[in-house]
Amino acid sequence: MFFRPLLDLFFPPLCHACRAFIPEAGELFICADCLDKVAFLTTPLCTVCGAPFATDQGSDHTCGACLTHPPLHTCRSAAILEGPLPQLIHRFKYGGRVQLSLPLGLLAISALSEFCTEAAPDLIVPVPLHKKRLRQRGYNQSQLIAQVLAKKLELPLEVGNLRRLRWTEPQTTLDAAKRVANVKGAFGVREAKRLEGKRVLLVDDVLTTGSTMRACVDALMDAEVSAVAAVTVARGVQP
Rank of each mutant, 00 (worst) to 15 (best):
L72R: 13
L45E: 07
E118Y: 13
A79C: 11
K132Q: 10
S113W: 14
Q143F: 05
V159L: 11
P126R: 15
R76M: 08
T43I: 11
P70K: 14
G26M: 09
A108M: 15
L88R: 07
R76L: 03
C116S: 12
R235C: 10
A54H: 11
V228P: 09
L162K: 00
F29E: 10
K151M: 09
C216F: 09
G50S: 07
H90G: 02
K93Y: 02
V189E: 00
C116R: 05
F21H: 10
I109R: 13
A20F: 05
I109Y: 14
A215K: 11
G210K: 02
A219E: 10
L45I: 05
G58A: 13
H130S: 00
A20H: 13
R135F: 15
K152R: 15
L220C: 14
A79M: 01
E224W: 01
P103E: 00
S101P: 03
V225F: 08
S142C: 12
A78L: 01
I124Y: 12
R164M: 11
K37G: 05
I145G: 12
Q147M: 12
T47R: 10
Q136A: 14
D60T: 14
F187E: 00
R214P: 00
R199D: 10
R19C: 07
P103G: 05
T42L: 05
R179Q: 04
M1P: 15
L202D: 05
C63K: 06
R235S: 03
R164S: 03
N140H: 01
N140I: 06
E24L: 12
G210M: 08
L201R: 02
L157F: 11
A219D: 09
A79Q: 02
P128E: 13
A20T: 13
I80P: 00
G188V: 01
F40H: 14
E154H: 10
P44I: 08
D175M: 03
N182M: 02
L123A: 15
T62C: 15
P239F: 00
H16W: 03
A192S: 13
T68F: 11
A192R: 07
A78C: 01
L155A: 14
M213E: 01
L207G: 00
R137Y: 12
A65S: 06
I109W: 07
K193D: 06
G95E: 03
L207Q: 13
L162D: 01
Y139L: 07
R235P: 15
V233D: 08
P12L: 11
P170F: 02
A32C: 10
A120N: 13
H16M: 01
D36W: 06
Q57N: 12
I124C: 12
F187Y: 04
L165K: 11
K152E: 10
T42G: 02
V231H: 02
P5C: 11
Q136N: 08
N140M: 08
I89S: 00
A108Q: 08
F53Y: 11
V200T: 01
C34I: 09
L112A: 05
Y94W: 04
H61V: 07
H73L: 15
L155H: 07
A177I: 03
L202S: 05
